[in-house]
Design a protein around this nucleic acid. Structure first.
Lengths: 295, 295
DNA sequence: TTAATAGTGTCTTTAAGACATTATTAA
DNA sequence: TTAATAATGTCTTAAAGACACTATTAA
């Protein structure tokens, strides 16, 4: 301790680095029920999917009881920053999955986690502990069934992410609806969330992290639905979307047809009358992305 | 100070955030001279271009006199982290240009600067001040003519970046040649530089930051040369490269033909017998990048 | 003239897009 | 049967790639 103090003259020393977690999921709307007075055949229609973000309600501190991103501090002298992010992800989501490393590349087991950006502004009083390193996680909704609030937070809830900043974050529960406007978020979390949203939108379009939001085997329509949930401006599913995805030379190694134990094509009737072909991501696929012509 | 100490119990407080700068440039080999005993016509051939990185030699500290990335600390209570990066960029390069903001998007005036990643590992003794936030800059070589070492560093030099980690960084001067192996770099700077290299390679292929390494108006061959300098595996310049760049629908707004005051096409004979058409980047161009079919 | 680089013509293959048609299933 | 979604066929246009050819200049 005295050694650290002595060092402070030469260069400032950090005593534990804050981490903020942007934990997103793509939630599936509950299926239509017969009570909805709809032709029973409509029951097979795809449930809607939309993007949700985990927020926690702070218990009285400098930022009052505002909703905020979950977060914490690295355990100085024992943790890397990535390890702290993994620990926070587990704590905040009550995940029992064995997350032991960053998942910047999708592994298809439901968790993507990557560092996004470091934030720092002078004047701690304005926005709480500075700096902070923001991490972005995309987690399969099935893994978020047992949320609990960790650390210094009151409640943890998944909020639907609005398509533009004129609309609030919304959370429906049996006890009613909670809405949180962008301006009501603690610290500079509105800025961080805005950056994180652009980040996941870019990532889902340029990498195969959609794999972490889908079952191991999925239909093209389900894949399209996940993309559209994260990027609302993405177009409608068309018959050509599927064909372009499968037949073009630069993409034809991206998905593989799912086969059953007899080597037969596996199909799913979960959401459609006519069974749809199931696919899985090919882990060997490496996207080529460039604005310049391929050399 | 005592107020800060009191706060430490609740959450650790940072007392100035370190910043490491990965300052790259694309250097132009000195032109062939007649003494090289080459047919004079060869003089017009393009000079080679290659990627260079600014390193500084530390003066005796915990890391001895190793070569390292230039860096510094945010001025706590007055600077944002971005402001510190801008200040360090100016100090280390002796730039007199009025850099007042991050240039994540190219502005074509010779400077691209963007935050890459935050690093943190426990155990300060192993690698000096932790954490650190690494910034990546790509600067036009003309702006790096007046290098001087800033702060606690001895010398500042531009080193040629090797194409793989089996080879060292090399710097030629009148006084001889300096080579620095990856393993000889201070702290964990080899890891940071490795990440930064992938980062700039990805950025130059997916954004228009090449504009910052070129004159306002340039030929297609010069553009290709810059890309190849940063991404050595990029292919040879072909006649189809130019045509694909200019004629395809998704890219045809990327470059605009340069016109003189009479509205005539501007051409350059600087590097070729037959004059080549000059182009400039279209600032309105927004690349579309996705592994999925365009909606 | 020749060397060197810039740029065009033309043909082939592949990808993208429009849109009609057929297929498969549950109720 | 009908509704709903999956998948194919076919035709058109655009992009990519191969490669021979022409153009412009300096020395």
């Amino acid at each position: 301790m005295s050694e650290a103090d002595a060092t402070q003259q030469e260069y400032p020393v950090l005593r534990g680095l804050p981490v903020d977690m942007c934990i997103f999921t793509v939630a599936t709307e509950s299926r239509k029920t017969p009570q909805d007075n709809i032709d029973k055949r409509t029951l097979k229609s795809y449930p809607d999917k939309h993007l949700e973000l985990l927020l926690v309600k702070r218990i009285s501190d400098t930022e009052g009881d505002k909703w905020a991103l979950p977060g914490g501090f690295t355990k100085i002298e024992t943790e890397t920053i990535d390890a702290a992010a993994i620990r926070e992800l587990k704590e905040e989501t009550n995940l029992d999955a064995s997350v032991t490393q960053l998942r910047a590349k999708p592994v298809g087991d439901g968790i993507y986690l990557e560092q996004m950006k470091a934030y720092y502004k002078p004047g701690r009083d304005d926005r709480g502990p500075t700096p902070t390193v923001a991490y972005v996680a995309l987690v399969h909704e099935a893994l978020l069934a047992n949320l609990h609030a960790g650390g210094d937070a009151g409640q943890a809830r998944l909020f639907r992410v609005p398509e533009n900043s004129a609309h609030p974050f919304v959370c429906h529960t049996e006890n009613g609806t909670t809405t949180v406007d962008w301006s009501e978020l603690a610290f500079d979390h509105a800025e961080i969330i805005s950056d994180a949203l652009k980040f996941v939108q870019n990532q889902i379009l340029t990498t195969t992290i959609a794999a972490d939001l889908l079952p191991k085997e999925f239909t093209i329509a389900e894949l399209h639905q996940v993309i559209s949930a994260v990027v609302p401006s993405y177009g409608q599913m068309t018959t050509n979307f599927a064909r372009d995805l499968l037949k073009t030379k630069t993409r034809n190694s991206m998905l593989k047809e799912a086969l059953d134990e007899h080597g037969e094509l596996k199909k799913s009737s979960q959401y459609s009358a006519r069974p749809a072909q199931l696919y899985r991501f090919n882990e060997e696929y490496e996207p080529w992305l460039s604005i310049y012509p391929r050399p």
